[in-house]
Nucleic acid binder design. Sequence first.
DNA 1: CGACGATTTGAATAGGATCAATGGGAGTGG
DNA 2: CCACTCCCATTGATCCTATTCAAATCGTCG
Lengths: 232, 232
Amino acid sequence: MRSSDLPEVRSLELFESMSDSNFEALMQAAYLQTFPAQLELITEGDPADFLYVVIEGCVELFARTNGRESTMGMVRPVGTFILAAVLKDAVYLMSARTCQRSKLLMVPSENIRDIFQRDEAFARAIVVELANCYRTVVKEHKDLKLRTAVERLANRLLRYHTDQGGTGMLELPQDKRTLASLLGMTPENLSRAFNTLKPYGVVVRGNKISLDDLEALSTLAKPNPLIDGRDT
Amino acid sequence: MRSSDLPEVRSLELFESMSDSNFEALMQAAYLQTFPAQLELITEGDPADFLYVVIEGCVELFARTNGRESTMGMVRPVGTFILAAVLKDAVYLMSARTCQRSKLLMVPSENIRDIFQRDEAFARAIVVELANCYRTVVKEHKDLKLRTAVERLANRLLRYHTDQGGTGMLELPQDKRTLASLLGMTPENLSRAFNTLKPYGVVVRGNKISLDDLEALSTLAKPNPLIDGRDT
DNA sequence: CGACGATTTGAATAGGATCAATGGGAGTGG
DNA sequence: CCACTCCCATTGATCCTATTCAAATCGTCG
């Protein structure tokens, strides 16, 4: 792989504490590749051959069953996906596709497991990463089970708003279609949810949103750090 | 703690590969305690002081927000809960209460983190356990997002049926009220879902169910190992 | 037997999905 | 630069699912 990409990978929490030689070994075995948009990278049910790291672009995790499909998450630089399947040497539970042209690092899962056995610091970093993944999904699950569609949207807008600096403006980081699926609703329903939020100061112009009455929106949304929090 | 309980704890996947001395140390620091039914053991948002192991009885994990409440999972002997919060030294994301009189082992989280640092085998076991937890929640999340209430119930019945030996009979391992919440619906709706399944050979007598037409039920349920599978 | 909680049933409502049709850019090709 | 096309998003109408509220029934435990 190109060494210019190494620093950002190395600085990933997952890789930063491992030994130099083990990191070298991992990178030796890894592939760095650019994929076009809308390419299905992995399919649920397939054996986990690689751990993926998103270097540039964006990847959508999704799941299918019985003809239906739902977006499970989005991965942006610099983030990894399907770590659990790799560690367990199991099949993927989710499929993944590129949203845009994307540069991905693919680390063979054998090498991950191998070095995991030998590098204590790496093993510990993996635990932290896994625990984060776990807690993220638990929060999403709570979100879905405890809130209505409008509440989920309201809280999501507040989260994006905070992430993007809290200027009263925000940009949706994905299609409304994808956002709808991520929030567990149909595109039509998302559109109506935006209308429902209009009286709360939510103004939509394409994928740019302005929040003109944060207080009202927060009162409706009732954000909860144990669901919406970044880290807690 | 009582040494008669040690073997079953020791044989937990999480503890079985760690060194004897570290296991001793963990157990020295741990408390074994019996709690009455319906006692709230931990509350989401509280700091994670202990890792819990269910020795006898049953514990319900649940979450609350904004006045609503939902069952997130059930833990039976011998299983652990809230490992991720303990490892991250973070707050609990879920609350827990006993369903029945239950005997629990409480291991101070400091000791867990301490030995996790020192015992490589333990660290590895933790990764496996965490990966399992993660994949379980992902499956539950897929279940909720991709299936209707009736489908969720049908698949759940098939799973219990298999777990209990596949004799055509099964027993619900919890209240219908709790099952409903676990499946993300109201008790009333669960009752109606059972009625919907009657033409598919599902006969309900209290918490005892018989499945008289497995083929029809499976055709409706379309079970998917990537959602319903125990281990995959 | 009586009381209580859990479950079931019924009726009305609300929330979301589906189907169908329209509007609105972004990109393409003339 | 403009017209065309295509896809996404929105809107409307309707249907279906699930929730809510209310009441009846069942079962269990004192």
